[in-house]
Write a protein that binds this DNA or RNA. Sequence first.
DNA 1: TCCTTTAATCGTATATTTACGATGAACGAT
DNA 2: ATCGTTCATCGTAAATATACGATTAAAGGA
Lengths: 104, 104
Amino acid sequence: MAKNKSDEFTADEMELADIAKALSHPARIKILKILSSRNVCMCGDIVALLPLAQATVSQHLKELKRVGLIEGEIEGPKVCYCLNNSKMEKAKDSLIKLFKKVCC
Amino acid sequence: MAKNKSDEFTADEMELADIAKALSHPARIKILKILSSRNVCMCGDIVALLPLAQATVSQHLKELKRVGLIEGEIEGPKVCYCLNNSKMEKAKDSLIKLFKKVCC
DNA sequence: TCCTTTAATCGTATATTTACGATGAACGAT
DNA sequence: ATCGTTCATCGTAAATATACGATTAAAGGA
């Protein structure tokens, strides 16, 4: 039978899965779109545009921050969010690389 | 404050999130790679190449089938899996469209 | 017919995700 | 100093995801 289960997943595979996870909720997709439509955006604006409670939006923002796709900068009592364009580009490249490797 | 929370997520946003969800586990990324390396693959081969139990791999295959990225065809007692290339391409296009819209 | 192989499904345990109200911390304005 | 605003975090409930052993169904071969 000789199963070779010793090989775990590669760092690349785990990283890509992590990026995909960050994109795996419609609210987070929408947040990225909102942030792109203005090049800077208060947290409250995002909350107002999503059908979710403020605490929930904050969690989604945290997840996007965790993988580095967005950044938040404190501005007085408000927080100004923006896309991390270089990280976005890296994410896109990683995904395209996978598709290229796999099929297209 | 005039929050407009009436707008839910679009079908596009939900579909894209769903695709991302299917890609959000390293085992599923690896399964896609395995299926691309041979253009056809028995379920047992995939199990042998992953550090996971057969039942778990079967669940991951089910998730990939759910979104249509792969297909399984019964061949006697075995099941022959393969990529759904057109669906893969659609998934890639949807992702690229998002990145293009958002930043790059 | 019975046995083996193959892979899905069941049952189940645990972890993670998602969601929300409540609370707290930081700041500006009064 | 106090108040209102803003947003993160806490606490928590419910749903979903992940993992595995055991069982089942389907097929081929003895």
